[in-house]
Every structure is written in structure tokens, then in C-alpha cells.
Design a protein around this nucleic acid. Structure first.
Lengths: 102, 102
DNA sequence: GAGCTTGTTCGACGGTTGTCGAACATGGGT
DNA sequence: ACCCATGTTCGACAACCGTCGAACAAGCTC
């Protein structure tokens, strides 16, 4: 299992933004934001596990998360430091609980 | 001509991010970032005027730009203050020239 | 008014994306 | 060894998106 995790510098900005521009993925990022690892299965938004797996892959390949394999479970965490270094303010702006949504 | 320009608070975050997650639109935002008004026709990226019109509409309806009509030409500008107030750091992070792309 | 310029709207097209169930892979338990 | 749990991958399908040319609308100038 290759676990393809790109260097953040090599990911186009538009790909990072596109990865964040989805409701389910944003929920995942919000859940991850406080820090620490989460088992993939711990995300219970109303989607099938196939869909959840897909979203986690998108996040990983956009350079937003890192995944550790431990037995049959996989633990995900936000690459916060790298993100804050490369895109200072991005995560804070996006995660701010104030609002958005109609 | 209605010129539908929503309140930024009422636009879902994902819509703002989706609007920025496109190469052509990001180029437009970068051109607008220094400030001031630009005529729609002044954007010469390799797309037809139909496509350009479409992208400007997406930006406007995501609350990112404001448009002033003057005769047959339309002038566009970034809603920078509102964006910086609601999403501090977002624009700076996204516009930073360092970057992205392989 | 004729004609030009600027920009929008209308299909249409092809590609991408989100979603799912089903099948598969892997690694524990007992 | 068998079963169960956790995830991934594989079609498939519908919806959406970026793109275009063509038609249209509105305003300016002669």
C-alpha cells in the first residue's frame, strides 16, 4: 500500500482549495483541526464508507492529511504545521465557526 | 440587469472556496488583488468571452467581487475588506506567489 | 438608424466529481 | 482455519462544471 502523500509545495493551490470546497471534507477537517489522530471509521457523517474512503483519499492527495496504518485501521491527522507555514491563515479562516451557510 | 451580489455571510464557505479553486478565476483574483477596478474585457487569459463572463459571474455570486455597470462596459473589483474581515488570512494565503503548481 | 463594441445568455459537448453497493484485501480474534 | 472488522477499489450512475460558438441585448458614435 503506497499511501501517496505529496509534498505540499508540489500541490497546486487550486487543488488544496478544491479539496476544502466540499461539505463532507470540511467536516472531516474540522474534526481533525483540534489535533491528534482519528481512526478513519470514527467519522460518522451521513455517507457510505466507500464515499468516506474517497474523501479521505482526496484530502491525503491534496497534502492536507497524513495517514498512519496500524493493523486494519488507519489513523488520520491534519498536516497543520506545514499548512500554516505554506498558507498562513488559510485553515484558521476556513475553520472559523462563524458562519457561512445560508 | 439584476447584478446579483450576495452578502458574504450568506455564502457557504464551500462556495467561496470552490470559486477560488479554479485556475482562470484565481488569475482574475490575482489581477484584482492590488486594488482598483478592472474592465471585464481587460482580462486576457486564453478563454473565450463567454467563458470569461461565466467565471466573473461565479466570482460575483460567491461574494468575491463587486461589479459596476457603466455604459456597455462593466468594472469589477475585489471585495477585499469584507473578505479580510470574514476570512482573515484567506486571500493572503491564496494569493501568495510562492508557489503551488508542480 | 446602421454599425460597432462590450458583455450576457443559450444550448451543447466532454470531462470531472460525489455517491452508492458489491467485491476484494488485510489483519486481528477465538 | 474460520469469521469478523476495517478500509480500499471497482464499476455505474447522476449531477455538475468548464468550455465553446452563436445568438442576443444594450449602449455609443457617426
Amino acid at each position: 500500500m503506497e499511501l501517496h502523500e505529496p509534498e505540499l509545495r508540489e500541490v497546486p493551490v487550486t487543488a488544496v482549495l478544491a479539496a476544502l470546497a466540499d461539505d463532507v471534507r470540511l467536516q472531516i477537517v474540522r474534526a481533525l483541526a483540534p489535533g491528534g489522530e482519528h481512526a478513519c471509521g470514527s467519522f460518522e457523517f451521513g455517507v457510505s464508507k466507500a464515499t468516506r474512503s474517497h474523501h479521505l483519499k482526496v484530502l491525503r492527495e491534496a497534502g492536507l492529511t497524513r495517514t498512519r496504518v496500524a493493523g486494519t485501521t488507519r489513523y488520520v491527522r491534519l498536516r497543520r504545521e506545514e499548512l500554516d507555514r505554506l498558507y498562513p491563515g488559510l485553515l484558521d479562516a476556513v475553520l472559523a465557526e462563524r458562519g457561512g451557510v445560508a
